[in-house]
Amino acid sequence: MTPPAGSLLSAEQLRKAYGPTLALDGAEFSIHPGEVVAVMGPSGSGKSTLLHCLAGIVTPDSGTITYNGHELSAMSDAQRSALRRSEFGFVFQFGQLVPELTCVENVALPLRLNGTPRKAAERTALSWMERLEVGDLRKKRPGEVSGGQGQRVAVARSLVTSPRVLFADEPTGALDSLNGERVMELLTEAARSTNAAVVLVTHEARVAAYSDREIVVRDGKSRDMERAV
């Protein structure tokens, strides 16, 4: 099976087991540049695992993942790490900001991992923070800002490398609806402006409503609702 034409990132027949638990059982996925796709499903359905596989964090037991014409499972761990550093961005539910670093240092981190000098990295980081309305937090540490602010900092960090794919795993899970919506608005706006594809894992319909289309994962199997209809 060939990936759908024009897709940036696609997966076919993914299987992944954690011990006796089958997390993915023939899941499929595909996303185009600039598209926001929600991955939905009840908890434990394997949606996070799908995201981890797509991002090259976890290697599936079988199946293929193609990013930009390259077979992901053929890459070495170092290559996949490099890919994540330069082409992908990540936002998680929590526990992702380094508590010792200031916010601006946190945002600059992916750039610095790519070898950008500190000053330049922090300048870019600051402009992203301003875009996400948290520019005045630059000197603060993550422990000193509210959850919503911290999540915006995390979004700024995920976007700082201008990734082509942004992976967001329950990005608003720890936020109230007002803060969550603001974060989603900023995230999708920023992603659209850079033509980044967004893989949005969520179990909340109102978050999924920010997507262009959704995929439902149930018992490790995926269902592309648009194609199904």
Binding site: S81, R84, F88, F90, F92, G95, V98, P99, P110, L113
Partner: peptide
């Protein structure tokens, strides 16, 4: 643990 995993997820080298 969570932080470390997150750092690795966005491409931090284990060496770092």
């Amino acid at each position: 643990k969570k932080l470390l995993s997150a750092l690795v997820a966005f491409g931090t080298r284990r060496r770092t």
